[in-house]
């Protein structure tokens, strides 16, 4: 993505450079590249093992099936970069999906429903952000409360699953653009657009850079006169809006709103973001990395289905990968501190 410009040292570096700039990669990209390497290795291994793995259809479905997770990961990247965490995303996704299904059922036009979903996500993020920033509630606990609230509200909307028949919503998933082999659905496009926007905001806006600064050292960020409070609330709002979009994608994917949708999705999201190279302590990572992380997650899931192995291996593998990445991150941080 365009983000690479920021990190890769250009040969014509600063005019002030006395010695020629060495060709080297910024350390923050190392975990992302590691994730890319893992992804490629998994692709190759699967291709060698299964024979027909790297097909256009499978690659297309990898993107389309995980569209909602990509959107959630994009939002989560903001939160984790700022040094926080958002456990509410799975529940908020389920709630907005539920809300949409209900509203569509009682005949509200889809043009009203979709903005309502995004607004519901934004409000939930705002509540969490305010609790974190202004009432000193730990992000973990504040988003936990948000998760409880959203999950409970799902059941207030309806205890049963509600089928969605609206053609616009369903069309997001069922419209297949492209030929028979390579295809992309509107949901996939939305996911990619969200990732692109996230990458742009993080890399090319003052707000984005402030998020990095806060995650790097909130104390310094404040002393530098950056708008810390506003930005910290905003990352949760962004995560909430992403959960709203994910709700739309997921509803379109499953063609129903159901209260038990997305249980545990917050953990998958966090795992994908971390595997994608974002430091859990904040301040380092990329939206693009989170995309890679989601793809790694998707490949693991598909491979395990291909193997005919128990689906529980997905979670175990993700857990082990997460652990490996966290330990490596820890070692990197330790080494940096020793300098």
């Amino acid at each position: 993505m365009s983000q690479t410009n920021v990190a890769a040292p250009t040969p014509t570096a600063g005019p002030a450079t006395k010695r020629p700039p060495r060709l080297r990669i910024r350390t923050s990209w190392v975990p992302v590249l590691a994730a890319v390497a893992i992804l490629i290795i998994m692709f190759l291994a699967a291709q060698l093992y299964f024979g027909r793995f790297l097909t256009p259809r499978l690659l297309s479905s990898l993107l389309v099936d995980n569209a909602y997770l990509m959107v959630l990961a994009a939002g989560m990247t903001f939160v984790i970069l700022s040094g926080g965490i958002d456990l509410s995303v799975g529940a908020v996704m389920a709630f907005t999906g539920m809300l949409a299904a209900k509203l569509l059922l009682i005949g509200v036009p889809v043009a009203v429903v979709i903005p309502t979903m995004l607004a519901a996500g934004a409000v939930s993020g705002l509540i969490i952000g305010i609790m974190v920033q202004y009432f000193d509630v730990q992000p973990f606990i504040a988003s936990l409360a948000g998760m409880f609230l959203a999950r409970g509200l799902c059941f207030v909307v309806s205890l049963e699953a509600i089928q969605v028949k609206d053609p616009t919503v369903l069309g997001l998933q069922s419209t297949k653009l492209g030929d028979f082999e390579w295809y992309l659905t509107p949901t996939g496009i939305i996911a990619l657009v969200v990732i692109a926007i996230a990458a742009w905001v993080l890399g090319y806006t003052r707000f984005g850079r402030t998020v990095y600064a806060i995650g790097g050292n909130v104390h310094s960020a404040r002393l530098m006169g950056l708008p810390v409070a506003r930005s910290k609330v905003l990352v949760y709002v962004i995560s909430g809006i992403c959960a709203g979009i994910a709700g739309l994608l997921f509803t379109s994917y499953t063609a129903a709103g159901y209260s038990l949708n997305g249980i545990g999705t917050e953990l998958d999201t966090i795992a994908a973001v971390v595997i994608g190279g974002t430091l859990l302590t904040g301040g380092s990572g990329y939206a693009l990395g989170s995309l890679i992380g989601v793809l790694v997650y998707g490949v693991i899931k598909v491979s395990i289905t291909f193997l005919g192995a128990d689906s529980s291996w997905t979670r175990i593998t993700i857990g082990v990968l997460l652990l490996a990445f966290v330990v490596v991150q820890r070692l990197i941080v330790r080494r940096a501190n020793r300098h």
């Binding site: 850079r209 402030t210 990095y212 050292n217 104390h219 310094s220 960020a221 301040g283 380092s284 940096a336």
Partner: peptide, 17 residues
């Protein structure tokens, strides 16, 4: 009081990019 996760230039310019 700078952010060691960012580049030198960014640290100089943060908020004034």
């Amino acid at each position: 009081n700078l952010c060691s996760n960012l580049s030198v230039g960014e640290n100089v310019m943060l908020g004034h990019e």
